[in-house]
Computed example of a mutant assay.
Amino acid sequence: MSTSTRPRAVLVLADGRTFVGRPFGARGTSLGEAVFTTAMTGYQETMTDPSYHRQIVVAAAPQIGNTGWNDEDSESVSGKIWVAGLAVRDLSKRVSNWRAERTLAEEMEKQGVIGIEGVDTRTIVRHLRNFGSVAAGLFSGEDADQPVEKLIEIVRAQPSMAGLDLAAEVSTDEPYTIPAEGEKKYTVVAYDMGIKSATPRHFAQRGIETVVVPAGTSLEKVREYQPDGVFISNGPGDPGTADEMVAVTRDIIEEKIPLFGICFGNQILGRALGLDTYKLKFGHRGINVPVINHVTGKIDITSQNHGFALSGKPGEQFDTDFGPATVTHSCLNDDCVEGVALDSGLAYSVQYHPESAAGPHDANPLFDQFIDLMSNHSPNAK
């Protein structure tokens, strides 16, 4: 087959940059925001994380696909791939893992997800780092044969990530329960803003029954489950659109129910405490992000995926409608707010992923901190 007739794929950025490569997975067109992840492993967990909804992920790691795909490691409840597309330098031609059940390309084709390989991902990552995450489009097969000017026009016509309420698109429609392993000690109501399946597993291993509810579920409905604590999950989109969830969070704090949040949940709690949010230039996406705890002085290496952040200064104390609060954690790379908490201890959150799927386990004790909080402040305590 000649070069001119070989199938091709094109990654098009809204600023006019284009990158031509080879297609894999499904064929067609996919639009989203181009972002990069520095993670060297865990591409299956990344691709099935609902927080990546409407994002075209560029992998900084040079080779992707070598461990294939299995039916155990997906982070969405249904195994759905949430990324809008995937760009890689070298797609592994051979799967080398005893747990693999099929290839990455086969799974992406099955789920209708578009991929591009053979592009200079170092250049793309450097471009996004220098100029920021940007609207983008992946075009493969016949769709890639359109004039470049037309492709750029299609990309620029899509809505900006800022102002999008995407959590509503990934949240569960109906409540469901993940039972505790062994003796049940506590019940937690978990707001699904785009929850990863590893989180209820960590709760279950600690004797916690998790009732997962849709985003925006009222306090009145939550009361029916008689929870010992409430959890607000990670998720995609602009936290500035989550007014309903912020109002619910304020109700929960007023009720003095122990509260724990991660990622999007950190931004929700921060807004409930009066902080503003803003969009980061290119976000934090990787599994080696250093975070300092200003309360203990301890530094954790963390797994992160967020394009928005809370406004605030490292270690800052501030007043809220519920008493004093503190910026408890910050990123050592850029001083970004990575955690907030009421000084009373009844509500706390972090911007990173203590469930470590994929990633380091440094922050895993945050789940045990939640158990300690519920043991001392559960509304069901006798």
Rank of each mutant, 00 (worst) to 15 (best):
P62T: 09
E45L: 08
R54A: 12
M47A: 15
D73G: 01
E45I: 07
M47I: 15
V58Y: 11
P50A: 14
I56L: 11
Q63K: 04
A59P: 00
P50L: 15
Y52E: 06
I56K: 12
Q63M: 12
Q55S: 09
G68V: 06
S51W: 04
A59C: 11
P50T: 12
P62F: 15
T48Q: 13
V58A: 02
P50V: 12
D71H: 12
D73V: 02
G68R: 03
A61S: 03
W69M: 08
P62N: 12
Y52W: 12
N70G: 05
T46G: 10
I56W: 05
V57W: 11
S51T: 10
N66I: 11
P62V: 08
V57S: 05
G68S: 07
Q44G: 06
T48G: 14
H53A: 09
Y43V: 11
G68T: 04
Q55D: 07
W69I: 05
G65A: 07
V57I: 15
T48N: 11
P50Y: 08
I64Q: 03
E45Y: 05
E72Q: 10
E72C: 09
A59F: 15
D71F: 09
A60W: 07
N66E: 07
Y43F: 15
A59W: 11
V57Y: 13
S51R: 10
S51H: 12
Q63V: 14
D49I: 10
W69S: 00
I64H: 06
T48M: 09
T46E: 05
T46S: 07
N70E: 02
I64V: 15
Q55N: 13
Y52L: 14
P62R: 13
D71M: 08
P50G: 09
M47Y: 10
G65Y: 13
Y43R: 03
P50R: 07
G65P: 07
T46L: 15
E72L: 07
N66G: 06
N66H: 09
P50I: 02
R54S: 15
W69Y: 05
V57A: 03
W69D: 02
H53T: 12
G68L: 04
A61E: 00
Q63G: 02
E45S: 10
I56G: 07
D73W: 08
R54Q: 14
P62G: 06
G65W: 14
D49K: 04
P50F: 10
D71S: 14
S51D: 11
M47Q: 08
E72A: 10
A61K: 04
V58M: 06
Q63Y: 01
Q63W: 03
